[in-house]
Each structure stands twice: as structure tokens, then as C-alpha cells.
Write a protein that binds this DNA or RNA. Sequence first.
RNA 1: GGCGCUAUCGUCUAACGGUUAGGACGGAGCCCUCUCAAGGCUUAAAUACGGGUUCGAUUCCCGUUAGCGCUACCA
Length: 475
Amino acid sequence: MLRVRFAPSPTGFLHIGSARTFIFNWLYARRNGGVMILRIDDTDIERNTDASLQSIFEGLAWLGLAWDEQYRQSDRLDLHRQAAATILEKGLAYRDFTPATHDEGERPRDAAQWLFNADMANLTPAESQRRADAGEKFVVRYRVPRDVTRDIEFLDGVYGHQSKSTADIEDFALLRSDGTPTYHLASCADDAALGITQVIRGQDHLSNTFKHILIFDALGGDVPSFAHLPLLVAPDGTKLSKRRHGPVVSVTTYRDAGFLPQAFVNFLCLLGWSPKNDREQLTLPELIELFSFDGINRSNAVVNFSELEPFDPKALWLNAQHLRSMPIEELLPFAEAELDRAGFSLPPGCDRQWLAATLDMLRARYQTLKDFGTRARPYFRDDFPMDDEALSRLDKPGAREGLRTLAERLAKLPEFTEAAVEAELRGLAAERGEKAGLLINAARSALTGQAVGPGAFHLFTAIGRERSIERLREV
RNA sequence: GGCGCUAUCGUCUAACGGUUAGGACGGAGCCCUCUCAAGGCUUAAAUACGGGUUCGAUUCCCGUUAGCGCUACCA
């Protein structure tokens, strides 16, 4: 059975890079009929926060991609300690009684000294046990083979064949001096215990994988296969971080900016992966169908944002594409939530069908859900601002007078349809010896306060006879 | 410093030895048109550098350069 996991550590909000890792895992699981597991890697008690945990669940909930099983590493500390004990018993690890030093700058960088501490590695089991029993603090380190060096190898699903000599791997820690497991140990022990078959994670773990293979071997279980994903970086080429790049790195920022989750997922997938068929706009089912490691790139992908343009233009474009092409019924809940937030309610006499038709008309020129809460105001409320550009259309000679005349004629119209309004308006313009555009543009301005928007005749029917006439009279 | 990874238009990418190096976003222009979008068309824009291998390299190999990652009792 294929089993994959997404294992975030709750030390910050849900990062878009993490979200992408989650998505790729999810896609892989769904594509191949596997099980998707969410595991909270909270072994760093110092840095974990509840707010972060909150942010992760909030972000994942928004993406709308469900997982099948859920675990939390802090519930599994016994398993981790047991794993460490097993490795220690096998002689594949040793106790290091050296006190912790926090000045890493002091670590030797040139020689091979950093690899291991010979004094500690060579302590006899009896001596090691005696000092431990005496209550001396120690960290448990993996005993990387030194007498004979060999190459650790694996075939990465994305990066291909990987190899590293044990001579270049240091004796890394398994257990801290307070007895808690390090990331490496906890992650591998859990991957083994949970039967993870494919580890799909960020490329920043590529070099760690050699250590992980050593741990899996020491534990005696199967080594999962690995696939590493290129990193998402900022335009300056550095890893995305909140401190340096601000809120654009957080998933909830996109949610709050009016992105559609499916469009956002689509965007993230295109960063570092290609379906290779020149298609860009893809639905979730299509992504599942098309997803494969073959299409994953090996170089980092830049998320293109700046102070001026806080969101990648392609993300915006994709959002607009999804916005206007998804079934209107699916869009409705998202749009309604936005209208609610803005305090807009259905105008008198308008039903859900009117709402669907009106939003359908508007969405072709909207980019994010936020537009429904701002630009759609004149369709829901009678108090709306008048743009300068709209005002100048009204100020054209004869425009206001023409609109007032039009209002009276529309009031007498037997049927208030798009075609009837158009005939009436064009007729009036002809009578007055003016171009129809003058009245058309002025009407749009009067009706919505906006110089730009949907076709004017369509507008009349959307806003309705009564309100339209009212607004024309008031110019 | 050591080790690992990477390198195609501004950005995301296609081309798995032979193409006028393709597409998308963004930019510019045109068309459509009652405005704005949308849509259609056109256009500018890339193989980091140097060596090989080969009849032929974006593609394979080596080197240089640059970037990124790991090198913690972080993950």
C-alpha cells in the first residue's frame, strides 16, 4: 500500500512552500490510490506555538484537500526513545557527554574534527553506562562508520541517483541531552512505524536523506523511496521567509486576498512542475490525472512578487481564469461569503437566480473574490461612490438631460428587456442627433458610478427597472 | 571551508542529439467594441561562460562562474 505524509513543524504559519509540498503529496496519493497522512512534527518544544498549529490547520482547511490519517509526534515520544535505545544497543550509536556549546562559530570547519568526537565515540560501553548511571547529561549520536568508508546511495524520484560518502557525514544527534528526539530520529522512526512508502519533501532535505537512510538501516526496517521538490524562493533568490518577505509567504494571506483555493493550488502546482502539454489552467481532477514526478523540475522556482505587486501576476491571472470559468454554482458560496463580509444583501425583489445571473455577468471582469465586496457595490446598494471618470461622462454636454428623458421613456416601456431598452436608447440618441455612445456611457456612469463595467443594456436589466429609472432621474 | 544540488526569455516552463529554441504570465501594438474586461492577431525577450564527445549539441562529459541547500542537542 502506498503511504505518503506531509509533516509540518508548528514553528510558523503555513508557508506556501509547505502548502505546495502538501499538495504534491496529496496529488501523488490520489493519483496512485495511496493514503495521505498528516503528521505534526512538533519535537522542537522550544519553538512550537499553538498559533502556528492553528495557522497550519486553517491553511490546509482552506485548500480543501483532505488527508486520511493524522498523527502528532509529541504523542509518540516513547516510540522515538525506543528507537534510539535500539540503535544504541546495536552499537550503532553512542553517548556523547560533551556539554552543549552554543557558539557554532567555534566548530572547526577545516579539518575532519567536526565529524565526530573520538574520545566519546571510543568510550567503552561499560564506561558509557557508568557515566550515564551517574546522571551525567549526554546526547546520543549516530556512529557513522569511520574505519571503512562507503557510499550511501539512493534513487531520488526527482533528482535521480544520489550518492555520498560516509566520510562526509558527521555523527549527528539522535537524542538531545534532555532525552527528547531530534528531527532526524523522530521523523525516521515515525516514517518507519507508520509504514511510509514514499517521502516527498523539500529539497532542503536532500542531503539529510543520507543520514535518514543510515537511521532506517539501523532500525532494521524498509527504507522508503524519496522524491525531493525544488524549493520556492523569493525574487532575490533566497528561501521565502516571513521576516524578509512579509505575509506573502503565508497561505492565509492568499485566502484573505480573495484567491480561490483551486486557483491557488493550480498556481502552486505550476511552480516547479509542468504537465508538459502547454496547459496552465487545470482543475483538481485534471491535476490528479496529470501529476507525476517526471514533470518536476530540479531548479528552484521564483515566486514573483514585489512591494508594488504583492502577488505573482500568474497567480492573479489563474485566479481570474478559474473565477470566470468554474461552474457558477460552485462560485456562488465563495462570492456570497464576500458579499456578506461587505454587508451587501439581496436587493428587494431579487432572488438567488438574479444573484447568479448578476455575478455571472460581473465575474468576467473580476480578478479576485474581493472584487465582489468592492466593485459590485452598485448592484446591491443604492449608496455607491461616483468615480471621477464616470462623472466626466455625465458632465458631457446633453448627457444628464438625455438620461432624464430616457428615464421617462423607460418608465412607459411595456416590457423592460435588454432589447427594448437598447431600442429606446438608440432611438432617443438618433432623435437628438447624438451618438448612442454618449448616452450609453453616461447611463453606465449613472447606474453604477463606474465608467467601466458590463455592457450598458445588460446593466439595466441587472439593476432592474425601478432602480435604473431612479438613478437616471437623479443625475 | 567541506559535501550535495542546480543553471532555457523579466517570471513559470517545453524541447528527453537534428526545431526558424515552443507555450504561458507580464510588456508593447493592432482588431473587436457603448466603456472596461474577455477574446483574436502581431511583436520584443532566453539556452551563464570555456573546453571537449559527435556529422551535429539547450540536450552527454569536464572545468569555471553564480545561486541554493546541508554542515545544530532547528526542522
